[in-house]
Every structure is written in C-alpha cells, then in structure tokens.
Amino acid sequence: MRTIKQRHRAINAPIADLVTYRALPTASVEYLDPFLFLNHHGPQVYPPRNRGLPFGPHPHRGFETVTFILEGDILHKDTGGHESVITAGGIQWMTAGRGLIHAEVSSEAFKQTGGPLEILQLWVNLPAKDKLVEPRYIGLQRDEIPVLTLPGGVVVHAVSGQWLGTAGAVQPLADVALAWLDLPADSQLTLPVAAPRTVFFYTVRGALRVNGTDTRARELLEFNHDGDELHLEATADAVLLLGHAAPFNEPMVSYGPFVMNTEAEIQQAYRDYQRGDFGVWNG
C-alpha cells in the first residue's frame, strides 16, 4: 500500500460572499503534477433573490477545468459557443487549450429561489503537445455519469478513466482518471493505482482512513510513489474527490488564468488575449 507523504489542510479563502476553501495550492503544497488547483466552494445556503456565483467573463489557456456540482447549479457560457446549465450531481469539463473566455454563474432560477450550494473546481494541466488544442466543453447532468455501486454501499461516480472496470463519461486528452465517491460510515474499498501515477485525494465531507492514515473533511493527502494500492475505510459518512494520472514531468509556468511551459508563452498568451484571439464576449 502507498504511504502518505503529507497531509495538507485547505485554507479559508472566501470570494465575496461565497464560502471558499482552497486546497491547492497552499503554503505547504504547490501542485501535484498534473493537478494544479482546487477550490471548494460551500457548503452554504443562498437566500432567495441572491446574486449567485461571482465568476463573470475571464480567459484561460493551457489547461482544463473540471467542475463538480454537488449542490446548486452553474450556468457555463464561453466564446466557443458553448452554453449550458448543469445542476446538482453533474460536471463540467472545459479544455481551455489555445484560449477562450468563459463565465461560470448561477442560473436565473437559482438566483430567484436560492438554496444549497457546494461546488468543487479542479484545474488539470495539459501536456506541452496539447497546450494549444482547440477549446472544448462537455457539460453532463447527474444521469449522464456512469455510477458503480459496490458492496457496503460505496458509490463511485466515474467521470473519466477506468474505475474497477467501469469507464468514465469523459475521454480526456491526457490519461487522467477522476471520480467522486460516496462512502457510508464503516464501508471499505480497495483500489489499484499504479505506483508511478500521481494520486489526487481530497476529502470533501466526513472522515476517512486510507492505508492506515486518518483524514478529515477539507484535507488533501499527498502520497509517495511506493505502492500500487489504496485501501479506504469510512469512519463517518464521507464524500471523496479522487483522481490519478501519470505526471507530465514538464516545466510549468502559471500566471493568473494561464498555465504554460515557459515565461515567453505566458507573455504570448496575454498578447493574444489582448488582441482578441480568445474570441469576443457577447454577454
């Protein structure tokens, strides 16, 4: 079984009136190649006639955003012509590639009625060869994501990659497996993950024991590359965001909304954005 290198506590980083905990990066961990960034928004309850999410139009280049909507909804719109409202239990997978502008806001219905909201957004790097691919967007509702129900009541929502023989809904450019798991108290699960791969392990709710180490809500675990098995035990009802991928082992430079391989490429991204190469926003 893999050993744990370090436990990283998510830090409180509110955005306007949106409750936010940032799990990656923090003072103790910069990134887990190729996983770059995780914001945990909520849980909170919005009142009726609220302003909704604050993420108006902004650009991206060079990576992918994967958004897990646990409660509430998100209206996604971008300069590639994509637009959809994804509700609780769904995901949004956006490949920024060569660049686009997008907004992530609440639907008019949510702003009128309010309700519970909890969202996770993960940034996943793209390898150098795919940094400038054509942007794409995939929005999937809960019933479009394969579900694997295991003995003991563990439920695996397979977003990408292979999970005990079940293929995820999305076929990403890189070999990235992502899922979220619901684990009832006292349930157990053993998963194979090849030792060279980077594990992404974030406890959203509840409490877990993995390979003999206890972890709690809003904690990210960093693993050593010394084993090929994860043994999970839920010590309370838990929700887990779990991923794994082969590290790219490439240079990485990030600045604001762009993630590239060199400083020169970051400067070029800003020039391209400023001259309108990311498209024109029609709000």
Results as ranks from 00 to 15, higher is better:
residue 1 M to P: 15
residue 2 R to P: 10
residue 2 R to M: 03
residue 3 T to W: 08
residue 7 R to I: 10
residue 11 I to P: 06
residue 14 P to S: 12
residue 15 I to Q: 08
residue 15 I to H: 05
residue 17 D to C: 07
residue 18 L to E: 01
residue 23 A to S: 15
residue 24 L to Y: 02
residue 24 L to I: 06
residue 27 A to D: 09
residue 28 S to G: 15
residue 28 S to E: 14
residue 30 E to K: 01
residue 31 Y to N: 12
residue 31 Y to P: 09
residue 32 L to S: 01
residue 33 D to S: 06
residue 38 L to V: 06
residue 39 N to W: 00
residue 41 H to L: 15
residue 43 P to N: 11
residue 43 P to A: 04
residue 44 Q to W: 12
residue 47 P to Y: 05
residue 47 P to S: 14
residue 48 P to E: 07
residue 48 P to W: 09
residue 50 N to G: 05
residue 53 L to Y: 00
residue 54 P to L: 09
residue 54 P to R: 02
residue 54 P to M: 09
residue 57 P to T: 01
residue 57 P to G: 06
residue 59 P to Q: 12
residue 59 P to I: 02
residue 62 G to Q: 03
residue 63 F to W: 07
residue 64 E to F: 00
residue 71 E to C: 12
residue 74 I to G: 04
residue 74 I to M: 12
residue 79 T to F: 01
residue 79 T to E: 01
residue 79 T to R: 13
residue 82 H to G: 11
residue 82 H to S: 15
residue 84 S to I: 09
residue 86 I to E: 01
residue 87 T to E: 13
residue 88 A to W: 03
residue 88 A to V: 03
residue 91 I to G: 11
residue 92 Q to E: 13
residue 93 W to H: 09
residue 94 M to W: 07
residue 94 M to L: 13
residue 95 T to S: 10
residue 97 G to I: 02
residue 102 H to M: 13
residue 102 H to G: 08
residue 102 H to R: 10
residue 103 A to R: 14
residue 105 V to T: 13
residue 106 S to G: 13
residue 111 K to S: 09
residue 114 G to F: 07
residue 116 P to I: 03
residue 125 N to A: 03
residue 129 K to Y: 12
residue 132 L to T: 00
residue 133 V to H: 06
residue 135 P to L: 06
residue 139 G to R: 05
residue 139 G to T: 00
residue 141 Q to Y: 15
residue 146 P to H: 01
residue 146 P to Y: 04
residue 148 L to P: 07
residue 149 T to Y: 02
residue 150 L to W: 04
residue 150 L to A: 05
residue 155 V to Y: 05
residue 157 H to F: 03
residue 164 L to R: 10
residue 166 T to I: 14
residue 167 A to P: 08
residue 169 A to C: 08
residue 170 V to G: 11
residue 174 A to R: 14
residue 174 A to W: 12
residue 176 V to P: 14
residue 180 W to T: 03
residue 181 L to P: 10
residue 185 A to E: 15
residue 185 A to S: 13
residue 186 D to Y: 07
residue 187 S to K: 07
residue 188 Q to W: 03
residue 193 V to E: 00
residue 194 A to Q: 13
residue 194 A to P: 14
residue 195 A to Y: 10
residue 195 A to P: 15
residue 196 P to Y: 11
residue 197 R to W: 14
residue 197 R to G: 02
residue 197 R to V: 12
residue 198 T to G: 08
residue 199 V to E: 02
residue 202 Y to N: 01
residue 205 R to M: 07
residue 211 N to S: 09
residue 212 G to I: 06
residue 213 T to H: 14
residue 216 R to G: 15
residue 216 R to A: 14
residue 217 A to C: 08
residue 217 A to F: 03
residue 218 R to N: 14
residue 218 R to M: 14
residue 219 E to N: 05
residue 222 E to N: 11
residue 226 D to M: 08
residue 230 L to A: 02
residue 231 H to F: 13
residue 232 L to Q: 00
residue 232 L to Y: 13
residue 239 V to C: 11
residue 241 L to Q: 03
residue 242 L to W: 05
residue 246 A to C: 12
residue 248 F to H: 11
residue 249 N to W: 05
residue 249 N to D: 12
residue 250 E to R: 07
residue 250 E to Q: 10
residue 252 M to C: 13
residue 253 V to D: 04
residue 255 Y to H: 08
residue 256 G to T: 01
residue 258 F to Y: 05
residue 261 N to I: 00
residue 262 T to F: 00
residue 263 E to H: 05
residue 264 A to C: 02
residue 264 A to G: 04
residue 265 E to S: 00
residue 266 I to C: 07
residue 272 D to M: 06
residue 276 G to Y: 09
residue 276 G to F: 06
residue 276 G to E: 05
residue 277 D to M: 09
